[in-house]
């Protein structure tokens, strides 16, 4: 039973097509990455998923039922634009947001305190939101999205602006929620996080779906023609004929091959030349490479450069 099912949804603002024919589904217990360059329609798609806007055509199903506002009590949403009432006390704020999600006051209070302990921000409970650091505010909002124990958690750029310690804390929390069987959708530009966390991904650009499916299936579509070599000494093996292109970061080389078969020959040549190999790994292209390649293709190369890398 998919938790979210989008069927061919389309949304047009004035003359701009925000989302065009998007179809995807998210299963329970999965971590789903929604990827795409800035302005590609990620937020528009998420807004339609939770009924903030209505698609011009296509259908949205939540929890295997046609979209209904009552289902929203089972959805937790962390928007990309962080927002809290600045002048409100943290605990009051969490209770208020919990109540809006259908909790009674006592439960909301109890869970708020428990979550603040889990997120290591107990000292913030009695403070006003405006007195907190940005990272803390982000954690508060993260808590607000989870207070009502939603079955579907939607997070737009959840880790942006957090230091590595806090980002890891949030990531670990999300991972443990997934093992509890919740479906988690998050959007991000950070491909390393997606690679580490996500079971499935969808890549959209200019409102259209470019790729979707399980991470493994997507990667399997690409040849294992990438080499990562950590070495010391002679680097003449980098000029082997089987290498299409390479980058040498003083001792760590990222190599793209014409075909997977040439990897062994290169290893043999390097050893023959007396190069000392510390690590030699044959891999699929990274998600980042897949991302850039697909987005470039969707824009046409020149235009892509600035927009993707920005």
């Amino acid at each position: 039973m998919p938790i979210v099912e989008l069927q061919n949804i389309r949304k047009v603002y004035d003359t701009k097509v925000a989302v065009e024919g998007l179809t995807l589904s998210i299963e329970p217990g999965t971590m789903f990455g929604l990827l795409g360059p800035n302005g590609s329609g990620k937020t528009s798609s998420i807004r339609m998923m939770i009924g903030m806007t209505v698609p011009d055509s296509g259908t949205v199903r939540l929890f295997d039922k046609p979209f209904a506002r009552t289902s929203l009590h089972k959805v937790g949403y962390l928007p990309e634009e962080r927002g809290l009432y600045k002048k409100m006390k943290v605990l009051d704020q969490l209770i208020f947001l919990g109540q809006l999600h259908g909790l009674d006051e006592a439960t909301a209070r109890k869970r708020s305190i428990a979550w603040c302990e889990r997120m290591e921000i107990t000292e913030a409970i009695a403070k006003k939101t405006e007195e907190l650091s940005k990272g803390m505010q982000q954690k508060i909002q993260f808590i607000a999205a989870l207070l009502h124990e939603p079955d579907l958690i939607i997070m737009d750029e959840p880790f942006s602006g957090l230091d590595p310690v806090n980002a890891t804390l949030l990531m670990d929390t999300l991972v443990s929620l997934r093992t509890e069987g919740k479906a988690i959708l998050f959007s991000t530009h950070r491909m390393d996080q997606v690679e580490k966390l996500c079971d499935s991904i969808a890549l959209i650009s200019r409102g259209k779906l470019l790729l979707s499916g399980s991470m493994r299936a997507i990667k399997a579509e690409y040849p294992r023609n990438r080499l990562q070599v950590s070495f010391t000494g002679d680097d003449t093996f980098l000029r082997h004929g089987g290498i299409a292109e390479f980058k040498n970061y003083s001792g760590i080389a990222e190599i793209k091959l014409h075909s997977e078969a040439e990897a062994q020959q290169i290893l043999a040549e390097a050893i023959a030349n007396g190069t000392h190999i510390n690590r030699f790994e044959v891999m699929e292209p990274t998600l980042e490479e897949i991302f850039i390649e697909n987005v470039r293709a969707s824009f046409g190369d020149e235009e892509a450069g600035g927009r993707v890398l920005a």
Binding site: L72, G83, L100, A145
Partner: peptide, 16 residues
Amino acid sequence: EEKTSRIFEVLLATIK
């Protein structure tokens, strides 16, 4: 004020 603090996004995820 709610617009500048972007709280709407959170509120509108549950209420009309």
